[in-house]
Design a protein around this nucleic acid. Structure first.
Lengths: 242, 242
DNA sequence: CACTCATGTTACCGCAAGTAACATGCGACG
DNA sequence: CGTCGCATGTTACTTGCGGTAACATGAGTG
């Protein structure tokens, strides 16, 4: 609590970039533009350095370590990203976007629904299998935000949603677009989107550390679950009332 | 790394209590017994104080704050719980056990399978709805363990599994016991256990902060998902290839 | 009484997040 | 040319937290 007031001076660069600054209001000295692109490039470089450190040292890497990797010192990081949460949020957005691109491709492949579901599951599992460090970083972002993001006013913070929510919304949208679910279908789609993503996540997390079966088998099992095999399975002999 | 060696002197009390120390080896002075029960009572008191603070200040409560709430100072906490992780693990075990009791009851109710599933979902959602603070604490335990627990040799650390895994295993066991899934059923049950728990968790998390519908509706939607309505739904008009 | 054992304290270390104040290189503009 | 704006960069500091060492006390036991 208290002491969370920034003085707003350097916020101009720390505010997660407005992202809508292509080429309007022509006229002013074009130096400012070049300077800005240079700043953005620097920001990317810093992000890549941070990425290296986080992937090497885990999510608890210190700001000092990241700054050292980038060949600079802490205050510069703070000027660019505001605080540690800002840096990590920026990192998470990069990786989340990358993962989402792959998933969208699988989600959009023109094959029967079951194959599409399997392809999506497999894409996700392959991703977390090949880069477990990235996965751990994305999935355990400590806690971050959840406080006072109203001042900037619009979409700041949404972008930083802990991946699972973004995935859930994305999937919900695809489901809502593709399936005819009757009245209340929007709501159903969203519930299912988040539910399926959670299923994928938890099962993947468990699978990743216990490796109880092949990826293909896991995909089949999960698809079977979504296809209602749980409801269809027979009771065991000698069970209780039902 | 390095410097993680304890000197083993106070470990006797910090080692997560052996928990198998009821009343064997009678004979030695019975004072030690009374002292031990007193110690355990103290430990419970400290846990309750910690609980109050964590529920009030969130999962980032400091050890100082917890000690103050208990009316003591830090070193005592460390004597009892070893480190902050130990304290939080003990807290998590308490709450997880409580939640699991409720879920087991729902899982064991002698009603048709669909009703049982719905009752379980509803129990979980009611729990996180009524005590969101507890829920947040349990679900976002930073990261904890994940390192070197082999020396003690048996179940230390298992008890501290981040709840989702415990729930998953629990559900897997119930599924494996109750359903006849043919060959490879064990594996299937575990996949499903973790998958379903993940579905419940992610959907619940999203529902808890967006409140897009009533709890009963959410339960229905999730049960529908598990009952294969996703596979059964019709395609939308004018969609792509499929 | 001496011993043990648990409780309790104060005072400290190390480290990480975050900040203040100062110094520098460069393009723009009079 | 000087100097202003602006971004980069630095050193040195504050604050707060996790964790520990060393010491003090009170109760029951031989």
């Amino acid at each position: 609590m208290e002491n969370t007031q920034h003085d707003g001076r350097q916020q101009a660069t720390a505010v997660e970039q407005p992202a809508a600054r292509h080429d309007a209001a022509a006229g002013p000295p074009h130096t400012v533009r070049r300077q800005q692109t240079a700043t953005e490039r620097r920001r990317r470089e810093l992000l890549e350095a941070a990425d290296r450190v986080v992937l090497r040292d885990g999510p608890d890497a210190s700001m000092n370590a990241i700054a050292a990797e980038a060949g600079i010192t802490k205050p510069i990081l703070y000027r660019h990203f505001g605080d540690k949460g800002g840096l990590y949020r920026a990192l998470a957005v990069r990786h989340t976007d990358a993962l989402l691109d792959g998933l969208r491709a699988a989600l959009d492949s023109p094959v029967p629904r079951r194959d599409r579901v399997e392809a999506t599951l497999d894409t996700y599992l392959t991703a977390i299998e090949m880069r477990p460090q990235v996965y751990r970083f994305l999935m355990h972002p400590s806690d971050e935000g959840q406080g006072a993001d109203k001042d900037t006013g619009f979409d700041v913070g949404r972008h930083s949603a802990p991946l699972l929510r973004r995935l859930g919304e994305e999937l919900a949208q695809v489901i809502g677009e593709r399936l005819d679910l009757g009245p209340g279908g929007e709501e159903l789609a969203r519930v299912w989107g988040h539910g399926i993503v959670g299923m994928m996540h938890a099962a993947g997390d468990w699978w990743l550390r216990e490796r109880p079966c092949s990826r293909a088998q896991l995909v089949q099992h999960l698809a079977d679950l979504l296809w209602g095999r749980l409801a269809a399975a027979g009771d065991r002999l000698g069970g209780p009332g039902f």
